[in-house]
Simulated scan of single mutants.
Amino acid sequence: MSFEEACVLKDKFGRNYPIDEKYMGIVMIVPYSDKDLERYISKLKLGEFDDNTAKLFSTDSQFQVCALWSNGMDVLKKSLS
């Protein structure tokens, strides 16, 4: 989906969303491509990103909305639609 479509979808989920029974993720717009998402998540561990950061990592200008949780080493992701 386009970045604008992802923004509309993100607003429906709010700021946080449960990934599972134990973890609450932050709802973020991230690159759609698995390869782009992998690069994005590897850099995400090093600092704080906002939704616009996903644009820098998307090679095809396609995005998805996910709940992400990280402890600084591990990242959990739940796709939201």
Rank of each mutant, 00 (worst) to 15 (best):
A54M: 02
Q64V: 08
R39G: 07
L44C: 08
F57G: 07
L44D: 06
M24T: 12
D34P: 14
I19H: 06
D51K: 08
D20K: 01
R39L: 11
S61T: 03
F63S: 04
P18F: 04
E38K: 14
K55E: 06
I19D: 08
C7M: 13
F63R: 02
T59Q: 08
D60G: 04
M28E: 11
D36N: 11
D36A: 11
D50N: 15
G47Q: 14
C7W: 01
L44A: 06
G14M: 00
G14W: 03
N16F: 14
Y40M: 02
K10I: 01
K22Q: 07
T53W: 03
D11C: 01
C7R: 13
K12H: 12
D34Y: 10
E21G: 00
Q64C: 12
L56M: 13
T59S: 15
V30Q: 05
L46W: 09
K22C: 06
I41W: 08
K22V: 02
N52P: 07
L46H: 14
D51G: 06
K45F: 01
L9V: 02
Y17P: 11
G25D: 02
L9N: 04
F49R: 10
I41H: 09
Y23S: 06
S33H: 12
Y32A: 13
R15N: 07
R15A: 10
S61A: 12
I29Y: 04
V30K: 04
K35P: 06
Y32W: 07
I19L: 10
V27H: 03
S70I: 02
Y32N: 11
A67E: 04
S61Y: 05
D11M: 00
E48K: 15
E48P: 03
V65G: 09
D51Y: 02
S61R: 14
K55T: 01
L56Y: 10
S33C: 13
P31L: 00
P31N: 01
D51W: 00
K22A: 00
S70H: 14
C7L: 14
T59K: 14
M28P: 13
G25E: 01
T53R: 05
Y32L: 11
I29E: 04
C66I: 00
E38W: 11
K45R: 15
D11H: 09
S58H: 05
E48C: 12
W69Q: 06
K43A: 15
L37A: 08
I29H: 01
L9A: 03
S42I: 01
L68Q: 07
D34I: 05
V8Q: 15
I29T: 00
S61D: 15
V30A: 07
V8M: 01
